[in-house]
Design a binder for these strands. Sequence first.
DNA 1: TGCCAGGCGGGGT
DNA 2: ACCCCGCATGGC
Length: 318
Amino acid sequence: MSTRPLIIEEVQIKKPRKNYDFTLTASAYNFSWWFNGKRLILPMEDDVIVTVIEDREELIAKIYSFKRKEVNIDDIVDKIRYIIGVDEDLKEFYNIMSRDPILGPSASVLRGLHVRATTPWLATVIGVCQQNASFKQGWRMLYNMLSLLGKRVRIENIKTIIPPKPSDINEDKLNILKEARLGYRARTVIELAKLFSKEEYLNDWSIKPSVLEEKLLNVKGIGNYTTRLALVLSLRYYEKPPIDRWLKRLIIEAYNVDENNVEEEYIKRWGKWGGLAALFTTIALDAEPLQKALERLKKGLLKPSLDKLSPLTLWRHF
DNA sequence: TGCCAGGCGGGGT
DNA sequence: ACCCCGCATGGC
């Protein structure tokens, strides 16, 4: 059942000396299959798996493959750099963050956290799992789905999992998705899988955000929120913030704006960084349900706590 | 129990 | 343009 990949290369990944925090980046919204507190595991396409650890000031990546055929190391290193965001300059974002009434208090503790890019396909599935559900329920759904449909492998005695590809999912997986407790979202995931299998170019980090956006909005069950979250999580595209009911209420309270001007105000404050700010807000407030999040805002308890189930500690629990 | 939740689409006005 | 409801599931 579990196959072992062969190591093909070990490389150093240069990271910025300042404003990059590997542990935070690896921790956020991750599962124990892919992060254990020290080692980050990145399943890549073509049966390649990469592990990354931080050794003093260096990042060391090990590249493994299940196939004997040659892989292009430079190409893989470029992808690693993109996924972990080492070339992303967030200085402007941090400047806004430090003065922000919601994110200001966590500006120093969350400094250096970058999105770990995931594929457009998986990013959209993550978005679908967040629809009309709590943080915990949504990530439980994704965990179940990966458990039931992913490919389990072992690497250096660590159990990990490779997410299902779009082509692995078709109509006859509907019952398994229901078993993963996706409910009515199961249908949407099937439709998504159809789109990404038919138009493979969409599941690529070089796709233009506007193209992916348009295609996703055409899928029944995918709307503005899910699409925008997918753009944040896959393409590092933050200009169109995914504002859900949760964030909307926080914005109304924190910025003292009318509900009709929420997005306008957010873009006015964050410029092209709104999508990242939205994600950081869920992390800063531990993705607490709305009423608790509003309470914390009122009391000024705006730093993430590390001792409960939250975006930063998900990997310890799942 | 019966509501409601980090959406969404369909059907009404 | 809006408003309103149902929808799978889980939590309270």
